[in-house]
Amino acid sequence: MDSLLAALRAAAEPTRLRLLALAGRGAFCVTEFCEILGQSQPRLSRHLKLMTEAGLLERVREGANAWYALPSGDAGDPAATGLARDLAARLPDDDAVLAADARQAARVLAERARAASETFRRQGADWDEMRALDLPAAAVEQRLLDLLPDHGLGRLLDIGTGTGRLLEVLAPRVAAGLGIDASKAMLALARTRLAGEGLGHCSVRQGDMYRMPLADASFDLVTMHMVLHYAEDPAGAIAEAARVLRPGGRLIIVELAAHDRADVIERFAHRWSGFSPAQLAALLGANALLAEPPALVDAPLPILVCPARRSAEALPARLSALAV
């Protein structure tokens, strides 16, 4: 009761409702909020601090920036989380002030995307790996979708989310989506992508896939799309994915099949030359995951789409220890 009353009091102010409406569109930093609302940083910082303490917003630190978004539900008071999302959904789209904020937010998001793209060009990373390898991205996405029901997938975690494309693809089927990536430049592009209509329930954050700041057994579906061939420790990455997966939950790995293309490994700095179905099944089985028959997508470099389920049994002790 006390926490809910505190959250209600924290929301009952015009600027804070405007911040909630913006947070419903995606994550913003304080500087961006200042640009959109036309208010000073000290003033908005006080509002954001109060709202974060009340559980209405989630604050995620990345380097020099802190990003604010609607709470994801990983931590904090469920009542405040529900209130924040309900209030954001109930705010009228035709309100003149909120409509003006939305127009300004669109401008800020466009500028963010432009800046992120320029950073990628300067670093020589302004390319999509599927396209660069001449791989059929649409066919791979369709094969993945064919493995899943049309709705009711619960909570999704996309490990190594990159530009957030898989979150966008699966958004209509999940209750909430979270992407983890180590690259701040990638996350900037992902946040711009997720500012689109119907994607407010998806978010991204910076994190290490070997030690994610997430609770045990907190996701119904985990995806790893073209991640393992870069991983120094594929077994460790799968172990961490298993840790956050609920009993009976699903893990889907999209990965290059084993190949002998040394030119590809050298050009794109891959750590591994793909994986065979047997290798992936062994990695999955060692981590309380029951491998299902993989699908093969034909391409110049064939791609495996490998589904698995987490056993209903308790995780091995060594996996639980990873969360400590």
Rank of each mutant, 00 (worst) to 15 (best):
A171M: 15
S183D: 03
E111N: 10
E129F: 13
A125N: 12
R193S: 02
L133F: 06
A190M: 02
D150V: 10
M209N: 15
S183M: 13
V140H: 12
V174S: 06
A113T: 06
A137D: 14
L194F: 10
D208W: 09
T163P: 04
R112Q: 09
P92N: 06
A125T: 08
A89W: 13
A138E: 14
E141C: 07
G179P: 13
L98Y: 00
Q142R: 09
R90W: 10
I180R: 01
D93E: 01
V204N: 03
I159P: 10
R165L: 03
R107S: 15
G200H: 03
R103C: 14
A88I: 00
M130S: 15
A138R: 12
R121A: 11
I159M: 04
A185K: 11
L148G: 07
E118P: 13
L133H: 04
R90F: 12
R90K: 05
C202F: 11
V140P: 09
A89P: 12
L91C: 09
V204A: 04
A132G: 11
R122W: 04
R114E: 12
V97L: 05
G124H: 07
R90I: 13
L194S: 06
F120I: 12
L144Y: 08
E197V: 11
E141G: 13
R121F: 12
L147I: 13
L194M: 05
G196Y: 02
F120N: 09
A96K: 13
D86W: 14
V140Q: 07
D128C: 08
V97T: 06
V97K: 00
T161Q: 00
D94Q: 12
R122T: 03
G160M: 06
M130L: 15
G179W: 05
A125P: 11
P149N: 07
T161S: 05
G179D: 05
R103P: 09
L87P: 01
D93R: 01
R114K: 14
L167K: 01
D126P: 04
A125M: 08
G154A: 11
L156C: 10
P172K: 02
A175Q: 09
R114Y: 07
G152R: 08
R103N: 08
G196H: 02
V97F: 00
A171V: 03
A171E: 08
K184I: 12
R121Y: 13
D128H: 03
P92S: 03
L157M: 12
R191Q: 04
D101F: 04
G124V: 09
E141D: 15
D94T: 10
A88T: 03
G207H: 00
R193Q: 00
L156G: 02
L148D: 06
A102E: 06
A96N: 14
Q104D: 13
G196C: 04
K184Q: 15
A102R: 07
L194N: 05
Q104L: 11
A182P: 01
D86E: 14
L144I: 11
V174Y: 01
L133C: 12
G164N: 06
D208A: 02
A138T: 08
L145E: 10
D134V: 06
G124S: 15
A185M: 02
L170Y: 01
A105S: 00
Q123S: 09
L157P: 00
D181W: 00
I159R: 05
Q206S: 02
V108K: 00
R112V: 00
Q142A: 11
V97N: 05
S183Q: 08
E197F: 03
Q206D: 12
A99M: 04
